[in-house]
Design a binder for these strands. Structure first.
Length: 1080
RNA sequence: GGGCCUGUAGCUCAGUUGGUUAGAGCGCACGCCUGAUAAGCGUGAGGUCAGAGGUUCAACUCCUCUCAGGCCCA
C-alpha cells in the first residue's frame, strides 16, 4: 500500500530544502530535465554574467529568482531551456579589488609592481567570490549550468571578442578619437557614459563669480578706470563651479540671443561697470540691486562677440597661432544659473572643446593623468586640482577679480568604483560609431517585448535617441586587450586583428602553447607596417576594452563563435528572454544591443527586421529595506540572503519577492511580510497535504481505477476541478506574458481560498470514511488538485513542490509538465464556477445574518431564503445542500419572482443605459429605479418595456437593468450587490434539541482530545442530566454515537463507575455531566 | 532642468476598455471551531482613492497643473 509521508512539523524552515538540494545533486536532476527535452524546440535564455568580485546580496536573489522562474516555466511547457552560467571577469572592479588586497593605489604603483604580476593576481581574484555566488545560486534553486560556464577572460572568449572588434573595424565602426571624457584620476581611466551614470552624488562645490576686465570692446580699447589703478572701466562677470579650470581659461562664451546689461555702482567709489545676463541680475546682485546699482546700458550677446578681456591667471603661455582671451558666441550658454557668461577651458569640458574647435581657440591642459597640476606651476604646483580650489579662490581675491565665492550643492559624477570625483578631461580614446546606427537600434528596441513597456520606450528608448558614440577603450591593465595595432610612424596605418591565427600570421611565427592574449604579453607582438613605402613598426595600442563590451559579446563569445559551434550558436540566438535589474538599462541591455546591431549580418538570425539580440526582457527594480530606504553598506541596512533563507526557507523568499508587488516596482523587503504572505501560504499547502490528505489517505486510499471518473463525482469535486483548470490556464497565461506577480498571487489566492478554505473545509468529513465512492472521489480530486498545484507553483517554490509531487506521484515535479494531472474537461465548467461563486457569496451573507440574529452556527435553523442573480438556477439548487450544511439550516430556497413574499426592483446598468440615453442617463436610471414590482413582473413575462425621458424613447432590454428580488418578510436579511439572504431565526423545540445534541457532540469531541484518544478509538459515553438532556439523548442518540465513535451511549441520573474522563458541562445553558471511557 | 515610475484602509498591495455600495491580506475588535490543533474559520469597524482644476450624463480610472517619494539622466 502506498504510504504518503507526512511532513515533519518540528524542523527548521530550511531543513527540507537542504535535503532536496542533496537529492537534486545526487540525481543530477537539472541535467535530467535537459535530457528529457532533447530535441524539443529551444527557449533561449541569456544569463547576464555577474562580476564575481563581491558577495551576492538579496537583490541578486531577486533577479536570479525571476530568471529561474521563467526558465522553469518554459521548461515545464516542453521547451528545451539551456542555461549556461557566465562570469564577467575583467575590468576595473577586479583591479580595484586587487589594489585593495595589495594595499596599493593607482596606475603608477601597479606599474611598479609589474603588470604581469598584477594581472596574475587579478585572474586569481576573480574567483575569490565565485564560490559564494555558486553556493547561493544553488541554494536558491537557480538552475544554471555551472559546469560549463562562459568566462570572459578565457582565450576562446577573448578571441571571439577580437573577432567582433575587427568586424566592427572592417565596417568602419571603430575609430580613434579625441574627446572630452569623464575621467577618473585615481583609476587613471576614462569612463563610459553608462559607468558615469552609476556614480552621480550630491556634493558641495565652490560657486565662484569672477569679474574680468574687458580690454577691447567693439574694436576700441576700453579706457582705464580713474579709481582703480591699472584696471579698465568695464568688466564682465563669469561664473564657474570649477575654479581650477580658470588656470586654463582661453575664452568666454555668451549666448548671442540673450540680453545682457551693464551696471555701475551708484556711489561712484568704483567707476567700473559689470556686465551680466539680464535675467540673472536679481539672483546675483540681490532683489534690491536698484538701490545700489544703476543701469548704464543693455546689449545683446551678439554685440559682445569678438570683445577681448584679461584672463584671471596668466601662468601658462598660450601657444602661437591660436585665439585666446576673446568672447565667443555659443548657443549652449544658458541663463538659468551663473551670469550668462561661461568660461571656456577646452581641455576640461565637452562644450568647451567643441567651441575650441569652432573658434580656433588655444588648448591648455596643465593637468596630468593623476589630476594634478604640474610641479612648476606657481602656488598650486603638484596639487590635485580639486584640492587647489581654495588656494585659487584666495589668489583671485588677492588679484581683485573675485566677485563673490560660495558653495553650491549639486549632483556631480564620481567614479562608480572608487568614489573619486570625475574630471572632464580631453583624452584620446577608441570609439564605436554607435550613433551611426542609432536608428536601427531604436527599431530593434521597438520590436522587443519590454516588461514593463515604459522602460523600453522611456528610460531606454529616450536614452537611445540621444546616443553618442561608445568610448570603449580603457587605459588599464586587466581586460580584453584592444586588438588594434598602429604604425609608429603613421598613425593612420591601423590593423585590427580578428583571431589568434591572424596574429600569428602577422608576426610570422606560431603562437606559443601557453599563449596569453592579456597584457603585458600581448604588447610584445609587433611587426613591420605593410603599407607600401612605410618603414614603421606596428605596435599594439596599449588600451584594454570596456568590460561591458565583454559581457555584451556573450551571445556569440560564449560559444567561441565564429571559430566553433556555429550551429549551436545559430540555434541559441537571439535570446527569447533575458532578465536583469533596471540598473542594467545602460549596461548590459545596451551593450548587447549596441554590439549585435553593429555586427549586423555577421551574426546569424540578426537581420535588421528582428528584435535581436533579445525578444523579451523583464526588468526588476530595487529591493529596499523594510522602511523603503535603499539598501547600502554605509547605512547598514543590507540584508544577508543566507540569514533570511535560513529563517524562512527560500521557497518563501522567492514567493514573497514575486508576489509582494509588480517586479518592476521597487519592493520593500520586510521579513514580517514574508511570514504573513509566503510562509503562511506554504504552511496551508503543507497542512492540507499532511493534515488532510496524507493522514487519511494512509488509511487505505491510493489513486486507481476504483476512483469515480470526474463526471461521476459530486458537484463540489467537479467545481474544484473546473476551478483548477481555470487557474492552470490563467497561471500559464500570466507566466507566458512574463507577469510573475499576477501568476504568484493567483496561485496563492487559489489555494488559500478555493482549495483550503472551501473545497477542503466542506469536504473534510468525506475523508474520514474510507472506501466509499464519495470518499474515493474526494481523495482523487484532492490528489489531482495537490499534484497540479505543485506543478503550477514549482517555478516559484521549487523545493516544497518537488517534495510533495514526489510523495504524490513518485516523480519529480521538475520533470512534469505545466498542466493538470489528468485534465478531463468538466461539463458546464463556467456555469458551475459562477454558481459556486454565488453560493459562497450567499454563505457570507448567511453568516452575517446569523451574527445579526446572534445565533451561533451550531444551532440548526429551519430556512434560508436566497436570491442569486446571474447564476444557473438548476446548478444553484444542486449546490444548495452545501450552503445548507455550511450555514446549518434545514432548507435553502431560492426566491422566484412568483413568490408572494417577493418584490422586484430594477437596478439600472449605467454602462448600457449610457449608450442609449447619453446625457439623459441619470433621469433614465432614476426612472428605471422607480419601476413598480408589478411592472417588472410583466417585463419578466416577456412584455416589452419602453422608456421615455424628455421625449426620447428607447426600448429597454435585459441588459439595461438587473432585476433584484427582495423578500418582504420578517426574516433576518443581509444583502450585497443583488445577492440576498434571508434567515428564519425561529428556534423551534426540535431545532433546539438538535442544537443541544450538537453541543454535546462538541463537548465529547473535546474531551476525547483532552483524554488523548486517537481519532479512531471507540468509547462508551454516559450522559447525566435533566429531562431536556434525556429527551435530546433519546432522540438523537444514534447520531451522537456515530459522530463521537461511541459504541455505547447511556443516559443516567447519576454518574457511576470509573471513566477515562468526566466533566460537568453547560450545554447552552443546560447543566449536564458527561463521562467517557475508552472501549478497547 | 529633462525622462520614467509611484501616491488607494493603521501596514502591504489589487482595482480590466470611465458605469454608481472602491476590494484583499495583515493588524485591530468581537466571535466560532476543536478529526489541519504550537493549527483552522467567521463577522465587523477602518478609505473626501495625495491635492487642485478640466473633459464627460458619469472619473480611483482620461487630460492639465501642484505637492510628496523613488529611479535614471543632464
Amino acid at each position: 500500500m502506498t504510504h504518503f509521508t507526512l511532513l515533519p512539523t518540528d524542523r527548521p524552515a530550511d531543513a527540507l530544502e537542504l535535503e532536496m538540494l542533496e537529492r537534486w545533486r545526487s540525481e543530477r536532476l537539472f541535467e535530467r530535465t535537459l535530457a528529457a527535452r532533447e530535441g524539443a524546440p529551444s527557449y533561449v535564455f541569456f544569463e547576464g554574467p555577474p562580476t564575481a568580485n563581491g558577495r551576492p546580496g538579496i537583490h541578486h536573489v531577486f533577479a536570479r529568482t525571476l530568471k529561474d522562474l521563467f526558465c522553469r516555466h518554459r521548461a515545464m511547457k516542453g521547451f528545451r531551456v539551456d542555461r549556461k552560467a557566465g562570469w564577467d571577469t575583467h575590468g576595473l572592479p577586479v583591479e580595484i579589488e586587487v589594489e585593495k588586497q595589495l594595499g596599493i593605489s593607482g596606475k603608477q604603483q601597479i606599474e611598479e609592481l609589474g603588470v604581469a604580476e598584477f594581472n596574475r593576481l587579478s585572474r586569481e581574484s576573480v574567483f575569490k567570490y565565485r564560490g559564494d555566488w555558486e553556493r547561493l545560486s544553488e541554494r536558491i534553486g537557480y538552475w544554471l549550468d555551472y559546469e560549463h560556464p562562459y568566462v570572459t577572460y578565457t582565450n576562446d572568449y577573448v578571441e571571439s571578442v577580437w573577432w567582433a572588434l575587427k568586424t566592427l573595424h572592417d565596417k568602419d565602426l571603430l575609430y580613434r578619437g579625441h574627446k572630452i571624457l569623464p575621467y577618473c584620476p585615481r583609476c587613471g581611466t576614462a569612463l563610459s557614459s553608462h559607468e558615469v551614470a552609476q556614480g552621480y552624488e550630491d556634493v558641495a562645490d565652490p560657486s565662484v563669480y569672477v569679474a574680468l576686465d574687458l580690454v577691447q570692446a567693439g574694436g576700441a580699447e576700453v579706457p582705464e578706470s580713474a579709481v582703480k589703478a591699472g584696471r579698465t572701466l568695464r568688466r564682465i562677470l563669469v561664473w564657474t563651479t570649477t575654479p581650477w579650470t580658470l588656470v586654463s581659461n582661453v575664452a568666454l562664451a555668451v549666448n548671442p540671443e540673450l540680453e545682457y546689461v551693464e551696471l555701475r555702482r551708484k556711489d561712484m567709489k568704483d567707476d567700473r561697470t559689470i556686465i551680466l545676463v539680464e535675467t540673472r541680475v536679481k539672483a546675483v546682485l540681490g532683489d534690491d540691486f536698484e538701490s545700489r546699482w544703476e543701469r548704464v546700458g543693455s546689449l545683446t550677446g551678439a554685440e559682445m562677440v569678438g570683445w577681448r578681456y584679461a584672463r584671471p591667471f596668466d601662468w601658462i603661455a598660450y601657444p602661437d597661432g591660436k585665439e585666446h582671451e576673446v568672447i565667443v558666441g555659443e548657443k549652449f550658454v544658458l541663463a538659468d544659473d551663473g551670469s550668462g557668461v561661461v568660461h571656456m577651458a577646452p581641455a576640461f569640458g565637452a562644450d568647451d572643446y567643441q567651441a575650441g574647435l569652432r573658434h580656433n581657440l588655444a588648448f591648455l591642459q596643465p593637468v596630468g593623468a593623476r589630476g594634478e597640476f604640474p610641479d612648476d606651476l606657481p602656488l598650486v604646483g603638484g596639487m590635485f586640482v580639486k584640492q587647489a580650489d581654495p588656494l585659487l579662490i584666495e589668489e583671485l581675491k588677492r588679484r581683485d577679480v573675485l566677485w563673490k565665492a560660495g558653495t553650491i550643492t549639486h549632483p556631480y559624477p564620481h567614479c562608480w568604483r572608487c568614489g573619486t570625483p570625475l574630471l572632464y578631461y580631453a583624452r584620446t580614446s577608441w570609439f564605436i560609431r554607435t550613433s551611426s546606427y542609432k536608428d536601427e537600434m531604436l527599431a530593434r528596441n521597438a520590436r522587443m517585448n519590454w516588461n514593463p513597456p515604459e522602460v523600453g520606450e522611456g528610460r531606454f528608448g529616450e536614452w537611445l535617441k540621444n546616443n553618442i558614440d561608445w568610448a570603449i577603450s580603457r587605459d588599464r591593465f586587466w581586460g580584453t586587450p584592444l586588438p588594434v595595432w598602429v604604425c609608429e610612424q603613421e598613425k593612420t596605418h591601423v590593423t585590427a586583428v580578428g583571431s589568434f591565427d591572424e596574429l600569428a600570421q602577422r608576426t610570422g611565427r606560431a603562437l606559443p602553447g601557453d599563449f596569453d592574449p592579456h597584457k603585458p604579453q600581448i604588447d610584445a607582438y609587433e611587426w613591420e607596417c605593410t603599407v607600401a613605402n612605410c618603414t614603421g613598426r606596428m605596435r599594439r595600442t596599449p588600451e584594454v576594452i570596456d568590460t561591458w563590451f565583454d559581457s555584451g559579446s556573450m551571445p556569440f563569445a560564449q560559444w567561441h563563435y565564429p571559430f566553433e559551434n556555429a550551429e549551436q550558436f545559430a540555434a541559441q540566438y537571439p535570446a527569447d528572454f533575458i532578465a536583469e535589474g533596471v540598473d542594467q538599462t545602460r549596461g548590459w541591455f545596451y551593450s548587447l544591443l549596441a554590439i549585435a546591431t553593429g555586427l549586423g549580418d555577421a551574426l546569424p538570425n540578426n537581420g535588421s527586421d528582428t528584435a535581436a539580440p533579445y525578444r523579451s526582457v523583464v526588468v526588476n527594480d530595487l529591493v529596499l529595506d523594510a522602511a523603503g530606504q535603499k539598501m547600502s553598506k554605509s547605512k547598514g541596512n543590507t540584508v544577508d540572503p543566507w540569514e533570511v533563507i535560513e529563517r524562512h526557507g527560500v521557497d518563501a523568499v522567492r514567493l514573497f519577492l514575486c508576489a509582494s508587488s509588480a517586479v518592476w516596482v521597487p519592493r520593500k523587503f520586510d521579513e514580517r511580510l514574508i511570514r504573513e504572505q509566503a510562509v503562511r501560504a506554504l504552511l496551508t499547502l503543507k497542512n492540507v497535504y499532511s493534515g488532510i490528505f496524507a493522514q487519511y489517505a494512509n488509511f487505505g486510499w491510493t489513486p486507481g481505477a476504483d476512483d469515480p471518473a470526474p463526471a461521476e463525482r459530486p458537484l463540489l469535486d467537479r467545481w474544484m476541478l473546473a476551478r483548477l483548470a481555470t487557474v492552470t490556464q490563467r497561471a500559464d497565461a500570466a507566466l507566458t506574458g512574463y507577469d510573475a506577480t499576477a501568476a504568484a498571487r493567483l496561485l496563492l489566492d487559489f489555494f488559500d481560498d478555493d482549495v483550503a478554505n472551501w473545497y477542503v473545509r466542506l469536504s473534510r468529513s468525506r475523508f474520514y470514511e474510507m472506501e466509499t465512492a464519495d470518499n474515493r472521489a474526494a481523495f482523487a480530486t484532492l490528489h489531482e488538485v495537490l499534484v497540479t498545484y505543485c506543478r503550477l507553483l514549482a517555478p516559484f517554490a521549487p523545493f516544497i513542490t518537488d517534495w510533495l509531487h514526489r510523495e504524490l506521484t513518485g516523480d519529480s515535479v521538475h520533470l512534469a509538465s505545466y498542466a493538470m494531472l489528468t485534465s478531463q474537461p468538466v461539463p458546464e465548467a463556467g456555469a458551475l464556477e459562477t454558481a459556486m461563486e454565488a453560493i459562497r457569496t450567499l454563505s457570507t451573507l448567511g453568516r452575517a445574518a446569523r451574527e445579526q440574529a446572534k445565533i451561533k452556527v451550531r444551532q440548526p435553523l429551519s430556512r434560508l431564503l436566497c436570491v442569486a442573480p446571474g447564476a444557473s438556477e438548476a446548478l444553484l439548487r444542486d449546490l444548495a445542500p452545501l450552503l445548507a450544511a455550511e450555514l446549518n439550516v434545514k432548507q435553502v430556497d431560492f426566491a422566484t419572482s412568483g413568490d408572494a413574499l417577493v418584490t422586484l426592483e430594477a437596478k439600472p446598468n449605467f454602462r448600457a443605459l449610457g449608450k442609449k440615453f447619453g446625457k439623459l442617463t441619470p433621469q433614465a436610471a432614476a426612472a428605471v429605479e422607480s419601476y413598480a414590482s408589478e411592472h417588472l413582473r410583466t417585463f419578466e413575462h416577456g412584455d416589452a418595456l419602453m422608456l421615455t425621458v424628455e421625449g426620447v424613447t428607447h426600448a429597454l432590454d435585459a441588459e439595461d437593468f438587473t432585476i433584484i428580488r427582495r423578500a418582504a418578510t420578517e426574516l433576518v436579511v443581509e444583502e450585497h450587490g443583488g445577492f440576498f439572504a434571508a434567515l428564519d431565526p425561529e428556534v423551534t423545540p426540535e431545532l433546539r434539541q438538535e442544537g443541544l445534541a450538537r453541543e454535546l457532540i462538541s463537548r465529547v469531541q473535546r474531551m476525547r482530545k483532552e483524554a488523548g484518544l486517537a481519532v479512531s478509538d471507540r468509547i462508551v459515553l454516559t450522559v447525566v442530566g435533566g429531562d431536556e438532556v434525556r429527551r435530546m439523548v433519546d432522540h438523537h442518540g444514534p447520531w451522537i454515537a456515530s459522530e463521537v465513535l461511541a459504541s455505547g451511549l447511556s443516559f443516567a441520573d447519576d454518574p457511576d463507575g470509573r471513566y477515562h474522563a468526566a466533566q460537568d458541562a453547560d450545554l447552552d445553558g443546560i447543566p449536564a455531566r458527561i463521562a467517557i471511557t475508552r472501549n478497547d
